[in-house]
């Protein structure tokens, strides 16, 4: 039996602006097992990104309980949350969020540099190269992000997400800024990663890509409208 990586119970998120409360998430119960490939779809503004931010410890829930790898994260300090993020979570953003002024290598190596565990230069170089080769960019180590195409930048972001060997990849609209060909390539990589045992939670509004996940959730007005539906095996 696979271990639960993410466990959410009664998680809500309320935004309050000028005394007006907006319920982004309402009492979400969710369990993500190790090795699971999960997609969350829904219309714009339904709370997809809020859910992913809470999963990734980038935001705190208003109420509810949340555990990663069995560890409760409801009351973690700023730095403890950073540490956990560094160790357990790999992010892939819609807008890539690479740092323009450092090289592809340094972008990918960042999580290792922020890690508590000391990593030798050689080990770091080896790991970064491995990850970049995995996404087909082993030859672009010294390029700057703005010298790459959108699809290539997203692949660098995937390499960066993988480099610290996290427990789960949180993926936010990975193809949102890409043409369909590049989007397909990215999705292929994600499929491969899942096939290798990576746990993936992906937010997308593109039903075509959502269906590639084995587990699909639909979020509407802050509530999960239905629970797990096993993905049909592709013909």
């Amino acid at each position: 039996m696979n271990q639960p990586i993410i466990e959410m119970k009664g998680v809500s998120k309320v935004f309050e602006i000028d005394d007006i409360q907006t319920h982004a998430l309402q009492s979400i119960d969710l369990v993500v097992q190790e090795g699971q490939y999960l997609s969350i779809t829904g219309p714009s503004g339904c709370g997809k990104s809020s859910l992913l931010s809470i999963m990734g410890l980038l935001d705190a829930p208003t109420s509810g309980e949340y555990k990663i790898d069995g560890q409760s994260v409801s009351s973690l300090s700023y730095d403890a949350a950073s540490k956990l993020r560094n160790k357990k979570i790999g992010f892939i953003f819609q807008s890539f969020n690479l740092i323009d002024e450092i090289s592809v290598f340094d972008n990918v190596a960042l999580p290792l540099r922020y890690s508590d565990e000391s990593v030798s230069s050689e080990a770091m170089a080896q790991r970064v190269t491995e990850c970049l080769e995995l996404v087909g960019l082993g030859h672009r180590l010294n390029h700057k992000p703005n010298q790459l195409s959108g699809g290539q930048q997203q692949r660098v972001a995937i390499a960066r997400a993988l480099v610290a060997n996290p427990s789960v990849l949180l993926v936010d609209e990975p193809t949102g800024n890409l043409d369909s060909k590049s989007g397909d390539q990215i999705m292929d990589i994600l499929d491969d990663l899942n096939a290798q045992g990576r746990t993936i939670c992906m937010v997308t509004h593109d039903a075509r890509y959502a269906t590639r996940a084995k587990t699909q959730l639909n979020l509407l007005d802050g509530q999960l409208s239905y629970s797990e539906v096993e993905r049909l095996e592709a013909v």
Partner: peptide, 16 residues
């Protein structure tokens, strides 16, 4: 700000 947001999101501590 955005760069700092990225660094924090991938695990940078405040000290770092």
């Amino acid at each position: 700000r955005s760069e700092i947001g990225v660094r924090v999101s991938i695990g940078a501590s405040r000290k770092a």
